[in-house]
Design a protein around this nucleic acid. Sequence first.
RNA 1: GGCGGCAUGGCCAAGUGGACUAAGGCAGCGGAUUGCAAAUCCGGUAUCCAGGGUUCGAAUCCCUGUGCCGCCUCCA
Length: 488
Amino acid sequence: MALKIYNTLTRRKEIFTPFEEGRVGIYVCGPTVYDHPHIGHAKSYVSFDTVIRYLRHLGYKVRYVQNITDVGHLTDNADEGEDKIEKRAKLEQVEPMELVETYMRSYYEDMDALNNLRPDISPRATGHIPEQIDLVKRLIDKGFAYESNQSVYFDVSKLKDYGKLSGRKLEEQESGARIEINPEKKHPADFALWKKAESGHIMKWNSPWGVGFPGWHLECSVMSMKYLGETFDIHGGGIENVFPHHECEIAQSEAANELPFARYWMHNNMVTVNGQKMGKSLGNFVTLKDAFKIFSPLTIRFFVLNTHYSSPIDYSNEALDAADKGLERLYNTIRNLRERLESSNGAEGQEIWKTKLEKYKNTFEDAMNEDFNTAEAMAVIFNLTKEVNNLLNSDEEISKEVLSEIDAFYKTYGGNILGIVPEKTVQHGADDVDAYKIENDLIKTLIDTRNELRASKQWELADKIRDRLSELGIIIEDKKEKAAWRKK
RNA sequence: GGCGGCAUGGCCAAGUGGACUAAGGCAGCGGAUUGCAAAUCCGGUAUCCAGGGUUCGAAUCCCUGUGCCGCCUCCA
Protein backbone atom coordinates (compact mmCIF):
# COMPACT_ATOMS: atom_id res chain seq x y z
CA MET A 1 0.00 0.00 0.00
CA ALA A 2 1.32 3.41 -0.92
CA LEU A 3 1.87 6.32 1.41
CA LYS A 4 -0.87 8.91 1.31
CA ILE A 5 -0.59 12.45 2.58
CA TYR A 6 -3.33 14.98 3.13
CA ASN A 7 -2.31 17.99 1.10
CA THR A 8 -3.71 21.30 2.30
CA LEU A 9 -3.15 22.72 -1.16
CA THR A 10 -5.56 20.31 -2.82
CA ARG A 11 -7.64 19.53 0.27
CA ARG A 12 -7.42 15.83 -0.27
CA LYS A 13 -5.39 12.81 0.57
CA GLU A 14 -2.95 12.10 -2.22
CA ILE A 15 -0.57 9.29 -2.96
CA PHE A 16 2.89 10.56 -2.21
CA THR A 17 5.35 10.53 -5.06
CA PRO A 18 8.64 12.33 -4.56
CA PHE A 19 9.86 14.91 -7.04
CA GLU A 20 13.09 13.00 -7.38
CA GLU A 21 13.00 9.22 -7.19
CA GLY A 22 14.05 7.89 -3.82
CA ARG A 23 14.62 11.28 -2.23
CA VAL A 24 12.43 13.53 -0.13
CA GLY A 25 13.06 17.16 0.61
CA ILE A 26 11.05 18.49 3.52
CA TYR A 27 10.95 21.91 5.08
CA VAL A 28 9.27 22.51 8.42
CA CYS A 29 8.77 25.97 9.89
CA GLY A 30 10.96 26.22 12.95
CA PRO A 31 10.58 28.25 16.10
CA THR A 32 11.25 31.90 16.74
CA VAL A 33 13.72 31.59 19.55
CA TYR A 34 12.84 34.27 22.04
CA ASP A 35 11.48 32.11 24.83
CA HIS A 36 11.56 28.55 26.11
CA PRO A 37 9.74 26.03 23.95
CA HIS A 38 6.25 25.03 25.01
CA ILE A 39 3.96 22.08 24.67
CA GLY A 40 2.76 23.33 21.27
CA HIS A 41 6.27 22.96 19.91
CA ALA A 42 6.24 19.40 21.21
CA LYS A 43 3.14 18.56 19.21
CA SER A 44 4.41 20.10 16.04
CA TYR A 45 7.93 18.76 16.06
CA VAL A 46 7.13 15.33 17.43
CA SER A 47 4.59 14.96 14.64
CA PHE A 48 7.01 15.96 11.93
CA ASP A 49 9.83 13.99 13.48
CA THR A 50 7.66 10.91 13.15
CA VAL A 51 6.91 11.79 9.55
CA ILE A 52 10.62 11.97 8.86
CA ARG A 53 11.34 8.76 10.69
CA TYR A 54 8.65 6.99 8.73
CA LEU A 55 9.81 8.32 5.37
CA ARG A 56 13.27 7.02 6.19
CA HIS A 57 11.80 3.69 7.20
CA LEU A 58 10.21 3.50 3.76
CA GLY A 59 13.67 3.84 2.33
CA TYR A 60 13.66 7.45 1.20
CA LYS A 61 16.78 9.50 1.49
CA VAL A 62 15.34 12.44 3.39
CA ARG A 63 16.72 15.90 3.72
CA TYR A 64 14.99 17.60 6.61
CA VAL A 65 15.38 21.36 6.82
CA GLN A 66 13.99 23.25 9.76
CA ASN A 67 14.82 26.90 10.22
CA ILE A 68 15.61 28.86 13.32
CA THR A 69 14.01 32.26 13.21
CA ASP A 70 16.42 34.57 14.90
CA VAL A 71 15.16 37.84 13.51
CA GLY A 72 12.26 38.90 15.61
CA HIS A 73 9.34 39.67 13.49
CA LEU A 74 6.92 42.21 14.62
CA THR A 75 4.86 42.06 17.75
CA ASP A 76 1.52 43.46 16.84
CA ASN A 77 -0.33 44.35 13.70
CA ALA A 78 0.80 43.53 10.21
CA ASP A 79 4.24 44.86 9.57
CA GLU A 80 4.22 47.33 12.40
CA GLY A 81 5.26 47.31 16.00
CA GLU A 82 8.25 46.11 17.91
CA ASP A 83 10.64 43.30 17.15
CA LYS A 84 9.89 40.38 19.48
CA ILE A 85 13.47 39.36 19.96
CA GLU A 86 14.64 42.88 20.57
CA LYS A 87 11.85 43.47 22.99
CA ARG A 88 12.74 40.41 24.99
CA ALA A 89 16.46 41.16 24.79
CA LYS A 90 15.86 44.58 26.28
CA LEU A 91 13.88 43.01 29.05
CA GLU A 92 16.61 40.54 29.86
CA GLN A 93 19.32 43.15 29.22
CA VAL A 94 21.24 41.07 26.75
CA GLU A 95 22.23 41.34 23.10
CA PRO A 96 19.56 40.00 20.75
CA MET A 97 21.99 37.38 19.51
CA GLU A 98 22.72 36.37 23.08
CA LEU A 99 19.04 35.90 23.69
CA VAL A 100 18.70 33.88 20.52
CA GLU A 101 21.58 31.64 21.52
CA THR A 102 20.08 30.95 24.94
CA TYR A 103 16.68 29.98 23.64
CA MET A 104 17.97 28.11 20.67
CA ARG A 105 19.93 25.88 23.03
CA SER A 106 16.89 25.52 25.21
CA TYR A 107 14.90 24.51 22.17
CA TYR A 108 17.28 21.75 21.12
CA GLU A 109 17.62 20.54 24.67
CA ASP A 110 13.88 19.94 24.87
CA MET A 111 13.59 18.53 21.38
CA ASP A 112 16.38 16.06 22.17
CA ALA A 113 14.56 15.04 25.32
CA LEU A 114 11.45 14.35 23.27
CA ASN A 115 13.59 12.08 21.15
CA ASN A 116 13.24 14.21 18.03
CA LEU A 117 16.02 13.68 15.55
CA ARG A 118 17.91 16.83 14.71
CA PRO A 119 17.12 18.33 11.32
CA ASP A 120 19.75 17.78 8.66
CA ILE A 121 20.05 21.51 8.15
CA SER A 122 19.00 24.16 10.68
CA PRO A 123 19.45 27.38 8.77
CA ARG A 124 19.13 30.69 10.58
CA ALA A 125 17.42 33.70 9.10
CA THR A 126 20.24 36.09 9.98
CA GLY A 127 22.66 33.84 8.15
CA HIS A 128 20.76 34.31 4.92
CA ILE A 129 20.31 38.05 4.59
CA PRO A 130 22.09 38.36 1.21
CA GLU A 131 19.90 35.62 -0.25
CA GLN A 132 16.82 37.35 1.08
CA ILE A 133 17.85 40.67 -0.43
CA ASP A 134 18.43 38.87 -3.71
CA LEU A 135 14.96 37.46 -3.75
CA VAL A 136 13.46 40.87 -3.07
CA LYS A 137 15.46 42.29 -5.98
CA ARG A 138 14.23 39.58 -8.28
CA LEU A 139 10.65 40.24 -7.26
CA ILE A 140 11.01 43.96 -7.92
CA ASP A 141 12.60 43.25 -11.30
CA LYS A 142 9.74 41.00 -12.26
CA GLY A 143 7.21 43.59 -11.22
CA PHE A 144 5.79 41.68 -8.28
CA ALA A 145 7.08 44.08 -5.66
CA TYR A 146 7.44 47.79 -5.19
CA GLU A 147 9.42 50.05 -2.95
CA SER A 148 7.62 52.49 -0.74
CA ASN A 149 9.39 54.75 1.72
CA GLN A 150 12.45 52.46 1.91
CA SER A 151 10.36 49.40 2.54
CA VAL A 152 9.45 46.85 -0.09
CA TYR A 153 6.04 45.22 -0.41
CA PHE A 154 4.76 42.32 -2.42
CA ASP A 155 1.99 43.36 -4.75
CA VAL A 156 -0.64 40.68 -4.31
CA SER A 157 -2.75 42.01 -7.15
CA LYS A 158 -0.05 40.87 -9.56
CA LEU A 159 -0.37 37.23 -8.65
CA LYS A 160 -3.55 35.69 -9.96
CA ASP A 161 -3.67 32.67 -7.71
CA TYR A 162 -2.82 34.43 -4.46
CA GLY A 163 -4.93 32.77 -1.79
CA LYS A 164 -4.92 29.29 -3.29
CA LEU A 165 -3.59 27.58 -0.17
CA SER A 166 -5.90 29.15 2.37
CA GLY A 167 -8.85 29.43 0.04
CA ARG A 168 -9.18 33.14 0.52
CA LYS A 169 -10.19 35.64 -2.05
CA LEU A 170 -8.81 39.12 -1.77
CA GLU A 171 -12.12 40.85 -2.24
CA GLU A 172 -13.68 38.87 0.58
CA GLN A 173 -11.22 39.99 3.16
CA GLU A 174 -12.50 42.68 5.40
CA SER A 175 -9.50 44.91 5.23
CA GLY A 176 -8.72 46.82 8.31
CA ALA A 177 -11.14 44.82 10.40
CA ARG A 178 -8.57 44.15 13.02
CA ILE A 179 -5.55 46.08 11.91
CA GLU A 180 -4.76 49.58 10.84
CA ILE A 181 -4.32 50.05 7.14
CA ASN A 182 -0.73 50.82 6.32
CA PRO A 183 -0.65 53.84 3.98
CA GLU A 184 2.64 52.69 2.43
CA LYS A 185 0.88 49.76 0.79
CA LYS A 186 -1.00 49.89 -2.48
CA HIS A 187 -3.37 47.19 -1.36
CA PRO A 188 -4.06 46.31 2.25
CA ALA A 189 -3.22 42.66 1.60
CA ASP A 190 0.24 43.48 0.29
CA PHE A 191 2.87 42.17 2.63
CA ALA A 192 6.33 43.34 3.56
CA LEU A 193 9.38 41.80 1.94
CA TRP A 194 11.76 44.29 3.45
CA LYS A 195 11.16 46.81 6.19
CA LYS A 196 12.89 50.06 6.81
CA ALA A 197 14.53 50.10 10.23
CA GLU A 198 13.23 52.87 12.44
CA SER A 199 15.74 54.55 14.71
CA GLY A 200 16.62 52.41 17.70
CA HIS A 201 16.12 49.17 15.81
CA ILE A 202 19.09 46.94 16.58
CA MET A 203 18.93 44.03 14.12
CA LYS A 204 19.31 45.68 10.75
CA TRP A 205 21.23 45.32 7.53
CA ASN A 206 22.22 47.42 4.53
CA SER A 207 20.16 46.90 1.44
CA PRO A 208 19.54 48.62 -1.88
CA TRP A 209 16.55 50.32 -0.21
CA GLY A 210 18.36 51.55 2.87
CA VAL A 211 18.98 50.08 6.28
CA GLY A 212 16.35 47.59 7.28
CA PHE A 213 15.41 44.01 7.96
CA PRO A 214 13.60 41.20 6.12
CA GLY A 215 9.88 40.56 6.23
CA TRP A 216 8.95 37.45 8.13
CA HIS A 217 7.78 35.28 5.24
CA LEU A 218 10.94 35.77 3.30
CA GLU A 219 13.37 33.56 5.16
CA CYS A 220 11.38 30.38 4.66
CA SER A 221 11.15 30.91 0.91
CA VAL A 222 14.82 31.65 0.62
CA MET A 223 16.14 28.90 2.83
CA SER A 224 13.88 26.19 1.51
CA MET A 225 14.80 26.88 -2.10
CA LYS A 226 18.46 27.20 -1.24
CA TYR A 227 18.67 23.78 0.39
CA LEU A 228 15.85 21.87 -1.26
CA GLY A 229 15.51 23.49 -4.66
CA GLU A 230 12.87 25.72 -6.18
CA THR A 231 10.35 22.91 -6.18
CA PHE A 232 10.49 20.47 -3.31
CA ASP A 233 8.34 17.77 -1.79
CA ILE A 234 6.88 18.63 1.58
CA HIS A 235 6.40 21.82 3.48
CA GLY A 236 5.15 21.46 7.02
CA GLY A 237 4.03 23.82 9.71
CA GLY A 238 1.32 24.75 12.14
CA ILE A 239 -2.18 25.20 10.84
CA GLU A 240 -2.26 28.74 12.16
CA ASN A 241 0.41 29.61 9.64
CA VAL A 242 -1.58 28.66 6.58
CA PHE A 243 -2.55 32.26 6.31
CA PRO A 244 -0.76 34.53 5.97
CA HIS A 245 2.65 32.95 6.36
CA HIS A 246 2.51 29.99 4.00
CA GLU A 247 0.31 31.79 1.52
CA CYS A 248 2.89 34.53 1.29
CA GLU A 249 5.74 32.05 0.99
CA ILE A 250 4.02 30.53 -2.01
CA ALA A 251 3.37 33.92 -3.54
CA GLN A 252 6.97 35.09 -3.23
CA SER A 253 8.52 31.86 -4.33
CA GLU A 254 6.30 31.09 -7.26
CA ALA A 255 6.37 34.66 -8.48
CA ALA A 256 10.16 34.63 -8.43
CA ASN A 257 10.77 31.14 -9.79
CA GLU A 258 7.79 30.70 -12.05
CA LEU A 259 7.73 27.14 -10.78
CA PRO A 260 5.55 25.37 -8.27
CA PHE A 261 6.89 25.73 -4.74
CA ALA A 262 6.19 22.93 -2.21
CA ARG A 263 4.24 20.01 -3.67
CA TYR A 264 2.62 18.75 -0.47
CA TRP A 265 1.59 21.04 2.35
CA MET A 266 1.15 19.41 5.73
CA HIS A 267 -0.35 21.25 8.66
CA ASN A 268 -0.45 20.09 12.21
CA ASN A 269 -3.16 21.20 14.57
CA MET A 270 -2.94 23.12 17.82
CA VAL A 271 -2.65 22.39 21.50
CA THR A 272 -5.13 23.75 23.97
CA VAL A 273 -4.55 23.78 27.69
CA ASN A 274 -7.53 22.77 29.77
CA GLY A 275 -9.70 23.56 26.81
CA GLN A 276 -8.27 26.99 26.11
CA LYS A 277 -6.15 28.04 23.22
CA MET A 278 -2.52 28.37 24.08
CA GLY A 279 -0.70 31.23 22.51
CA LYS A 280 2.42 33.17 23.08
CA SER A 281 0.56 36.42 23.28
CA LEU A 282 -2.00 34.93 25.65
CA GLY A 283 0.73 34.01 28.05
CA ASN A 284 -0.94 30.77 29.12
CA PHE A 285 1.52 28.41 27.57
CA VAL A 286 3.04 25.48 29.38
CA THR A 287 6.76 25.29 28.80
CA LEU A 288 8.23 21.90 28.16
CA LYS A 289 10.64 22.39 30.98
CA ASP A 290 7.72 22.74 33.37
CA ALA A 291 5.90 19.79 31.83
CA PHE A 292 9.02 17.63 32.15
CA LYS A 293 8.99 18.21 35.89
CA ILE A 294 5.78 16.20 36.09
CA PHE A 295 5.89 13.88 33.10
CA SER A 296 8.69 12.18 31.28
CA PRO A 297 9.41 13.55 27.82
CA LEU A 298 8.51 10.23 26.27
CA THR A 299 5.15 10.32 27.99
CA ILE A 300 4.54 13.63 26.27
CA ARG A 301 5.70 12.15 23.00
CA PHE A 302 3.33 9.22 23.48
CA PHE A 303 0.51 11.60 24.33
CA VAL A 304 1.12 13.61 21.16
CA LEU A 305 1.24 10.57 18.92
CA ASN A 306 -1.94 9.16 20.39
CA THR A 307 -3.87 11.72 18.35
CA HIS A 308 -3.60 12.35 14.63
CA TYR A 309 -1.36 15.29 13.81
CA SER A 310 -4.17 17.15 12.13
CA SER A 311 -6.43 17.01 15.19
CA PRO A 312 -6.10 19.36 18.11
CA ILE A 313 -5.11 18.02 21.51
CA ASP A 314 -6.01 19.30 24.91
CA TYR A 315 -3.22 19.22 27.43
CA SER A 316 -4.28 18.39 30.96
CA ASN A 317 -2.71 16.52 33.83
CA GLU A 318 -5.42 13.86 33.64
CA ALA A 319 -4.77 13.19 29.98
CA LEU A 320 -1.04 12.98 30.59
CA ASP A 321 -1.54 10.67 33.54
CA ALA A 322 -3.46 8.29 31.32
CA ALA A 323 -0.72 8.41 28.71
CA ASP A 324 1.89 7.78 31.36
CA LYS A 325 0.16 4.65 32.54
CA GLY A 326 -0.32 3.32 29.06
CA LEU A 327 3.32 3.81 28.25
CA GLU A 328 4.33 2.18 31.50
CA ARG A 329 2.32 -0.88 30.59
CA LEU A 330 4.10 -1.09 27.29
CA TYR A 331 7.46 -0.74 29.02
CA ASN A 332 6.57 -3.48 31.50
CA THR A 333 6.06 -5.89 28.67
CA ILE A 334 9.21 -4.89 26.87
CA ARG A 335 11.24 -5.15 30.06
CA ASN A 336 9.84 -8.61 30.73
CA LEU A 337 10.53 -9.59 27.17
CA ARG A 338 14.12 -8.44 27.35
CA GLU A 339 14.71 -10.16 30.68
CA ARG A 340 13.38 -13.35 29.21
CA LEU A 341 15.53 -12.92 26.14
CA GLU A 342 18.63 -12.69 28.28
CA SER A 343 17.92 -15.91 30.10
CA SER A 344 16.60 -17.77 27.10
CA ASN A 345 18.67 -20.64 25.82
CA GLY A 346 17.62 -21.58 22.37
CA ALA A 347 14.92 -24.09 21.48
CA GLU A 348 13.59 -24.11 17.99
CA GLY A 349 11.62 -21.19 16.60
CA GLN A 350 7.86 -21.06 16.46
CA GLU A 351 6.87 -20.40 12.89
CA ILE A 352 3.55 -19.01 13.94
CA TRP A 353 5.23 -15.96 15.41
CA LYS A 354 6.94 -15.14 12.15
CA THR A 355 3.52 -14.96 10.54
CA LYS A 356 2.11 -12.95 13.38
CA LEU A 357 4.86 -10.37 13.35
CA GLU A 358 4.53 -10.08 9.61
CA LYS A 359 0.86 -9.31 10.07
CA TYR A 360 1.60 -6.69 12.72
CA LYS A 361 4.17 -5.03 10.53
CA ASN A 362 1.71 -4.80 7.70
CA THR A 363 -1.08 -3.34 9.79
CA PHE A 364 1.32 -0.88 11.34
CA GLU A 365 2.50 0.27 7.95
CA ASP A 366 -1.03 0.40 6.59
CA ALA A 367 -1.88 2.78 9.41
CA MET A 368 1.14 4.98 8.83
CA ASN A 369 0.53 4.98 5.11
CA GLU A 370 -2.85 6.58 5.74
CA ASP A 371 -1.48 10.05 6.28
CA PHE A 372 0.68 9.01 9.23
CA ASN A 373 -2.04 7.65 11.44
CA THR A 374 0.09 7.28 14.54
CA ALA A 375 -2.89 6.65 16.80
CA GLU A 376 -3.77 3.56 14.85
CA ALA A 377 -0.15 2.52 14.63
CA MET A 378 0.09 2.65 18.40
CA ALA A 379 -3.03 0.53 18.69
CA VAL A 380 -1.21 -2.08 16.63
CA ILE A 381 1.63 -2.02 19.13
CA PHE A 382 -0.80 -2.52 22.00
CA ASN A 383 -2.52 -5.38 20.26
CA LEU A 384 0.82 -7.06 19.84
CA THR A 385 1.66 -6.33 23.44
CA LYS A 386 -1.37 -8.22 24.64
CA GLU A 387 -0.28 -11.25 22.65
CA VAL A 388 3.26 -10.95 23.89
CA ASN A 389 2.07 -10.87 27.49
CA ASN A 390 0.09 -14.01 26.86
CA LEU A 391 3.15 -15.64 25.41
CA LEU A 392 5.39 -14.59 28.27
CA ASN A 393 2.85 -15.79 30.83
CA SER A 394 2.36 -19.14 29.21
CA ASP A 395 4.31 -22.16 30.39
CA GLU A 396 5.58 -23.06 26.97
CA GLU A 397 9.21 -22.67 26.12
CA ILE A 398 9.94 -19.73 23.86
CA SER A 399 12.82 -19.74 21.47
CA LYS A 400 15.49 -17.09 21.60
CA GLU A 401 14.81 -16.42 17.97
CA VAL A 402 11.18 -15.57 18.56
CA LEU A 403 11.98 -13.39 21.54
CA SER A 404 14.55 -11.42 19.65
CA GLU A 405 12.29 -11.02 16.66
CA ILE A 406 9.63 -9.54 18.89
CA ASP A 407 12.21 -7.29 20.47
CA ALA A 408 13.33 -6.23 17.01
CA PHE A 409 9.74 -5.32 16.20
CA TYR A 410 9.54 -3.08 19.23
CA LYS A 411 12.86 -1.51 18.35
CA THR A 412 11.95 -0.79 14.76
CA TYR A 413 8.32 0.21 15.05
CA GLY A 414 8.12 1.50 18.60
CA GLY A 415 11.67 2.84 18.63
CA ASN A 416 12.93 3.90 15.21
CA ILE A 417 9.60 5.01 13.84
CA LEU A 418 7.48 6.22 16.72
CA GLY A 419 10.41 7.06 18.95
CA ILE A 420 8.68 5.94 22.14
CA VAL A 421 10.61 2.77 22.89
CA PRO A 422 14.15 3.36 24.10
CA GLU A 423 17.01 1.03 23.18
CA LYS A 424 17.35 0.13 26.81
CA THR A 425 14.38 0.06 29.12
CA VAL A 426 16.15 1.87 31.89
CA GLN A 427 13.97 4.66 32.90
CA HIS A 428 11.32 2.70 34.70
CA GLY A 429 13.45 -0.21 35.59
CA ALA A 430 16.58 -1.52 37.12
CA ASP A 431 18.38 -2.65 34.00
CA ASP A 432 21.11 -0.09 34.12
CA VAL A 433 23.24 -2.15 36.41
CA ASP A 434 26.37 -0.05 36.25
CA ALA A 435 24.80 3.28 37.00
CA TYR A 436 22.90 2.03 40.01
CA LYS A 437 25.16 -0.70 41.32
CA ILE A 438 24.81 0.00 45.03
CA GLU A 439 21.11 0.68 44.72
CA ASN A 440 20.69 -2.58 42.85
CA ASP A 441 22.70 -4.59 45.35
CA LEU A 442 20.89 -3.14 48.34
CA ILE A 443 17.52 -3.93 46.92
CA LYS A 444 18.65 -7.39 45.97
CA THR A 445 19.71 -7.98 49.55
CA LEU A 446 16.32 -6.90 50.79
CA ILE A 447 14.58 -9.11 48.30
CA ASP A 448 16.69 -12.11 49.30
CA THR A 449 15.85 -11.53 52.93
CA ARG A 450 12.24 -11.17 52.10
CA ASN A 451 12.26 -14.39 50.14
CA GLU A 452 13.58 -16.23 53.15
CA LEU A 453 10.79 -14.76 55.22
CA ARG A 454 8.27 -15.83 52.62
CA ALA A 455 9.71 -19.31 52.53
CA SER A 456 9.05 -19.60 56.22
CA LYS A 457 5.63 -17.99 55.77
CA GLN A 458 6.43 -14.91 57.82
CA TRP A 459 4.04 -12.88 55.72
CA GLU A 460 3.75 -9.94 58.01
CA LEU A 461 7.42 -9.05 57.90
CA ALA A 462 7.67 -9.86 54.21
CA ASP A 463 4.76 -7.54 53.45
CA LYS A 464 6.28 -4.85 55.57
CA ILE A 465 9.44 -4.84 53.49
CA ARG A 466 7.37 -4.68 50.33
CA ASP A 467 5.31 -1.80 51.69
CA ARG A 468 8.31 0.16 52.82
CA LEU A 469 10.02 -0.24 49.47
CA SER A 470 6.82 0.81 47.77
CA GLU A 471 6.86 4.02 49.80
CA LEU A 472 10.33 4.61 48.43
CA GLY A 473 9.05 4.13 44.90
CA ILE A 474 10.28 0.58 44.43
CA ILE A 475 7.71 -1.92 43.26
CA ILE A 476 8.31 -5.59 43.98
CA GLU A 477 6.74 -8.24 41.84
CA ASP A 478 6.82 -11.82 43.07
CA LYS A 479 7.09 -14.11 40.11
CA LYS A 480 7.35 -17.85 39.80
CA GLU A 481 11.10 -18.01 39.31
CA LYS A 482 12.28 -14.97 41.21
CA ALA A 483 11.11 -11.64 42.53
CA ALA A 484 11.60 -8.70 40.23
CA TRP A 485 11.62 -5.03 41.06
CA ARG A 486 11.23 -1.77 39.27
CA LYS A 487 10.90 1.89 39.96
CA LYS A 488 7.52 3.50 40.05
C1' G B 1 -18.60 39.88 8.53
C1' G B 2 -15.53 36.13 5.49
C1' C B 3 -12.98 31.27 5.34
C1' G B 4 -12.12 26.49 7.56
C1' G B 5 -12.59 22.53 11.12
C1' C B 6 -14.79 19.52 14.93
C1' A B 7 -19.03 16.84 17.79
C1' U B 8 -17.79 8.73 18.67
C1' G B 9 -18.62 4.76 25.64
C1' G B 10 -17.18 7.82 32.44
C1' C B 11 -12.41 10.39 30.19
C1' C B 12 -8.82 10.51 25.90
C1' A B 13 -9.10 8.84 20.88
C1' A B 14 -9.03 5.88 15.80
C1' G B 15 -12.44 4.79 12.07
C1' U B 16 -15.17 8.92 7.03
C1' G B 17 -20.46 4.48 2.53
C1' G B 18 -20.86 -2.60 3.36
C1' A B 19 -16.61 -8.50 7.75
C1' C B 20 -18.71 -1.40 12.59
C1' U B 21 -22.07 -7.17 16.06
C1' A B 22 -17.21 0.75 16.14
C1' A B 23 -9.59 0.04 17.21
C1' G B 24 -6.39 1.41 21.06
C1' G B 25 -5.22 3.91 25.88
C1' C B 26 -7.06 5.45 30.86
C1' A B 27 -10.75 4.60 34.70
C1' G B 28 -14.35 1.36 36.82
C1' C B 29 -16.87 -3.67 37.41
C1' G B 30 -16.76 -9.23 37.48
C1' G B 31 -13.45 -13.44 37.13
C1' A B 32 -8.48 -16.14 36.70
C1' U B 33 -3.55 -16.04 38.86
C1' U B 34 -1.18 -14.77 43.93
C1' G B 35 -0.20 -16.48 50.99
C1' C B 36 -1.92 -11.29 50.28
C1' A B 37 -0.29 -7.98 46.54
C1' A B 38 1.96 -6.29 42.01
C1' A B 39 2.27 -7.54 37.01
C1' U B 40 -0.57 -10.19 33.47
C1' C B 41 -4.76 -12.54 31.24
C1' C B 42 -10.19 -13.39 30.34
C1' G B 43 -15.17 -11.17 30.27
C1' G B 44 -19.19 -7.45 30.17
C1' U B 45 -19.60 -2.06 29.08
C1' A B 46 -21.28 2.96 22.74
C1' U B 47 -25.66 2.49 17.63
C1' C B 48 -21.57 7.31 16.77
C1' C B 49 -24.75 15.84 19.01
C1' A B 50 -30.31 16.48 17.24
C1' G B 51 -33.77 16.25 13.21
C1' G B 52 -34.57 15.36 8.08
C1' G B 53 -32.75 13.29 3.35
C1' U B 54 -29.77 10.16 -0.39
C1' U B 55 -28.74 4.76 -0.68
C1' C B 56 -30.16 -2.14 -1.05
C1' G B 57 -26.84 -0.31 2.99
C1' A B 58 -24.31 5.65 6.76
C1' A B 59 -20.76 7.05 12.53
C1' U B 60 -19.02 7.66 7.44
C1' C B 61 -22.49 11.49 1.88
C1' C B 62 -26.28 15.92 1.61
C1' C B 63 -29.51 19.64 4.20
C1' U B 64 -31.14 22.13 8.69
C1' G B 65 -30.40 23.09 13.76
C1' U B 66 -27.43 23.20 18.30
C1' G B 67 -22.67 23.44 20.64
C1' C B 68 -17.37 24.02 20.48
C1' C B 69 -12.80 25.54 18.07
C1' G B 70 -9.20 27.72 14.58
C1' C B 71 -7.75 31.49 10.91
C1' C B 72 -8.64 36.54 8.85
C1' U B 73 -2.46 40.61 14.04
C1' C B 74 2.38 37.45 16.19
C1' C B 75 2.25 32.14 17.40
C1' A B 76 4.02 25.33 16.46
